[in-house]
Structures are given as C-alpha cells and as structure tokens.
Design a protein around this nucleic acid. Sequence first.
DNA 1: ACAAAGACTGTAAACGCTTACAAATATCCT
DNA 2: AGGATATTTGTAAGCGTTTACAGTCTTTGT
Lengths: 327, 327
Amino acid sequence: MDNRRMPTIGDVARLAGVSTGTVSRVLNQRAGVHPQTRERVLEVMERLGYVPMQAARELTGRGDTVGILLAPGVRRYIPYFVLLFEHLTEALWREGMRLEETPTDAAGLPLKPARGYILLGAHDHDPRLEALQNAQTPHVLIGVYPGAYWVAPDDEGGAYAATRHLLELGHRQIAHLTGQPQQQVGRERLLGYRKALEAYNVPFQPHLVLDGDFSTLTAYRVLRKAWEQGLRFSGLFAASDEMALGAAAALEDVGMRIPQDVSLVGFDDLPEIGTALTTVRQDIAQIARAAVRLLKESLAGGAPHGLRVPVQLVLRGTTSLKEVRTA
Amino acid sequence: MDNRRMPTIGDVARLAGVSTGTVSRVLNQRAGVHPQTRERVLEVMERLGYVPMQAARELTGRGDTVGILLAPGVRRYIPYFVLLFEHLTEALWREGMRLEETPTDAAGLPLKPARGYILLGAHDHDPRLEALQNAQTPHVLIGVYPGAYWVAPDDEGGAYAATRHLLELGHRQIAHLTGQPQQQVGRERLLGYRKALEAYNVPFQPHLVLDGDFSTLTAYRVLRKAWEQGLRFSGLFAASDEMALGAAAALEDVGMRIPQDVSLVGFDDLPEIGTALTTVRQDIAQIARAAVRLLKESLAGGAPHGLRVPVQLVLRGTTSLKEVRTA
DNA sequence: ACAAAGACTGTAAACGCTTACAAATATCCT
DNA sequence: AGGATATTTGTAAGCGTTTACAGTCTTTGT
C-alpha cells in the first residue's frame, strides 16, 4: 500500500511559497486572499492531490461531521428512514463531509457535538429543535417546518397524481388507505386524494377512507375486514407501498385480482418493496442531496427556508382501465 | 444543546492527580502503570463519563474508524439489524472508536478504507469475506462462521428454552412458525424446537411446522390459513417476535384468545415490538459489545474464534397452563 | 548500606489544521 | 508627500491525544 506521507497543508504552503495560514484561508474560501495567490495555491493543491485531513479539522472545531437525529419514539427501522440514511451518507460524502453515527442521551440529544445535524421525524414542538436553535447549531429537518430549514417531498401533489390516474382510468369508487392522522405526511396525502376527487366532480365518500398506520399487517386486516363487510371499490390508493402490499394480499385472499378487479396505487416506490406496483416515486436521493445543500446554506448562515422535492407517478402493473361490465 | 466542554484527557489527569501521559497509558492498556493509579484513573474516567476524542487519536495515527458492511441484497431495515447498528455505535464509541457510514461500491466493498469492519448478513462464501481476508483487514462477523471471528446468539438454546416452557405448561400440540430455511438462524431455532420435543418424548409432527419468512404479514397469512384448514395446536413457538405478532393477529381474527386458547412464544425481544410477548430475549447490546471485543482482538492479531452470546426466556402474558378440558 | 536494576510517572514535542493577532504592503485622501 | 485605511500575508498558539525520553521511587543483590 502507498506508504508515502499524504501531503499536508505545510507541503502546499512551501511549494506555493506562502504560509500555512494563507493555504488554510484558500481552503476555507475565506476572503482576503489575493486572487493570484489563491490561484497559485490551488494549482499546487491540484498538483499534489492534496486532500485536507478531516480529523485535524475536527480537532479545531471545524470538522464537517454531520450527525443524524431521529426523534425519540420514532421507529428507526422504517424502510424510508433507513434508505434516507443511506442516501444522506452518499450525498454528504460527495461534499467531503462525513456522516457519523452519534449516540444520543435519553432526551435524544447527541452525546457528541457535530458540525450540523439532520433531523428526522421531529414533531412541531420538539424540544430538541429549540435546543439546536438556541445553540445556533446548523440543522435541516426532513418534513415541513416553517421557520427552519426543511426538505419534504410533494406529498399532496403525489397523492393528487395517484388519484387522478385512477380517475382517468375510469374508476369512480376509489378508496384511500391512510397513514396515521397524527403524521403530517398522512394528512397531506389524504388532502391530495380529496382534491383530485373534487377536480373530477366525484363526491367524497368518508366511508371509503380506511384508517391505516403505515404498517403492512394493519393494511391487510383493515382491507380484508372492510371487504368482507361489503365495502366495494374498483380503485385503491394506499398512502404507502408497504400498506399497498398488505392491501394487495388481503384483496387476493378475498378472491380479487389486481388489476382486473381492483386497481391499486401505492406511494414511495422504495426499492425492494412492491417493485411491481404502480406507485408515486419519491426520489430519496434527491431529497438527501437537497438536505445536504440546505445544510451547507445553514452552515454558511442565511435565512432558513424550505424545499419541496417533486415526486413522480410510476406506471406499473397494478392499475388498469375500469372494466365496463355489460349488464 | 449541551455546551459544556466534553471532558478531555487533561481533565481526567487533573482530577486523578496524575499526568496526561499516565492517563493515556491507562487508556491504551499499556503496561507499566501502578494498579492503584490505574484504578484511580479509571474511576475518574467513569465519573466524568470521559470518552476519548477520536479525531485527536487519528491525528496521532492511532485512529480506530470502523465500518459496517451489510451483505448486498440483505434488507437493511430489518429491525434487528437497525438495533444492532445502534448498539454497535454505542459499543464502539465507548472504546474510543467511531463507526463511520461508508458508502460501498457495487460489489459491496467500502469506498474508503477503515481500520476494521463488522459484517452483517454475510453468507458462507461471500466474496467480500475473501477480499477482507486477503487484505488482512480485521473483521468480525455476526452469525456463525467457523474460521473467522464471529459472534452469534444462542439460537438453538433459546428455541429449546421456549419450547420447553410450552411443554412444561402441559402443551403437547406445539406448532412452530419458522424463518426461511436458507438462513442459519431459522435452522438453528428449528433444531432447538425439535430437541426439546425429543427431550420430553413428544413426537415431532412435520405438519405442525409452518413455513414463515420472518415477516409479519406472511406469519398472519400462514397462521390464518392453517387454522382455517383445521390445523389445531395449543402452543405456538414463532421464530421471531415479528412473526409472533402476525400470528397473534391471525389467531385473534379466527376467534382464539391468547393465552387462554393458544399459548404463544416469540424470539428476539426487540424493544417496541411485542412488548407483551413471552419471548426469548437476545441481548443485542451484549452481542455488540462482544463484536467490538473480538474486533479489538482481531486488531491486535490472534487466532480467529467465535463467541456465543446467551439468551434468556422472558415470561410475559402470552403463555399459560394448558387448560384441561373435562370431557 | 550502596549501587544497579526495575517499576512507575511526568514532560514536552509532535500530529494537521484553524484563527486571532500582528506585520507588511497597497490604496486613498487631502 | 504624509498620513489614514484597507488589503493581504505571516506567526504562533491552540485543539486532544500519543510517545520517546528523562526523571523519581522501589526493590534487589551483595
């Protein structure tokens, strides 16, 4: 293995004929370096293949280690979060930052300080939010949080597109399997569903809204029970792929075929889950990149703002034209 | 945010009345420190909650950044893995090592070298295993892998204890809901079940073994279908808590009460999952600590070996004495 | 009792980087 | 021209840890 010493800031300084301080300033894009000097330094860095050593930067309190904070009580092993984790790792990596898993104390606060944080599953009056704000620690939230930096997918728009798709296939009895009403996501998706119905002049029927909780098992039980009790519909929009999977299993078990008898649309398009599903794709990678970009803004200082990441309807095998049965 | 400075080696030294050099020696388990001094230093470290700062160690060339490698194709969001992740983070952190999320390439190999690795979900002839072995990179596997460093829970023993518990409650018709046969875990748990039956002279009945796949939904469907087709039993040992949950839902939906009609035992005792379940507890924290200990051994060089972590039956509300029905 | 050897401990330099401060140089104003 | 500013640069002290080296005690052997 390459056992030559990695070039340091000192090497760069010597070769560029400047001091280490100047090199550091160039590195951190600080003002007050003569353009020519900057140019020379950058050239040498390029030539040497210089890469700043993270550990040393960290020691001076300017590390780019980013932590992830998950709200206490939120299940960490929700596929969505896990995937987001992965993409955040990747996105940070590209920017030369590192994602470190930091253990948290009982209150959910990190035991070890990081340069910035990305928060998942925070609720509106999360005490940790206040703590971060007070400490002026840069942070970005996943979800909608006016007043902070946040990134969220276009849940309402996605739900609208999903429902519209069913409507355009001719379905009029369209059920919706919701997430918990406590969660913003679930509410936004329900709203999109309702708006689409409204746009197509299909009356909203409360009994077609089935209460789920984002879990596959509950979806199965709710669907099966509803069907057995006589509820009928030809289209179903489930607020997540996992629920769509449970719903599909239930419908099959009561003798329905998908999509011949019931058309089904999910939401999320997570890899490895329902890969045959017509669904609304969230580009998690894009969300991760957006979060990292905002984190950098936050690091640089600026006015907090949010970002909506667009979603996209993906047509696969679980939806079809409403059969017009001849009487 | 907690803006108190983290305690440093200097703080420890001052409070213990020794020099930083000595503290460092204690930290690195170097010889030549008086036992009493060592004791005192360790006490102060404990009291202060001192944790060495990884960045500083890295600067001196003694960094211990550890990576986690998950077999490609293995679902990362399995609760068990996620929890293991958390505990590994914690355990490594205590030892002054850091767990860094490293993106991997298509083959599942890390893009950035680390001091050592912990592998999850590897299969017997994983190409990555060979790669690590060839590169002499220290690594520990979770699961049973003769010839390497490995840590695994006592699956067979736990299954034995679970089944014995049901037997001692008087149950004789005991079903077993398995995991996939491709996975070692599933096989070992099945073996424990069979051995317990044997020990109590209860004949093994193949039709009482129900094929699951560790998922809640499948468990529900398999159980419900089996019951509806007339299969009867008074005890059920599910190879995981998640499956036990699905099974319980199915049994309830067909009108059975737990534990009055059917006694149920799970496996894993994951927090947030089936907290009312009689189950076999795996101490994931202990497994994580063991993995870290082995990793350190591996780092120090030595003969690879494995470690079984004991499990424990936890009695809760889902098992009861077999009712003796008077005819 | 005394030197030599051994056990233990303290000291300070080094790791690569940032940054407050001081110093040097350039620019502007009257 | 002669200061007053503004711009650019260098200097050196730190960040938390390790470790070679030099001390200071103990023990041991004679």
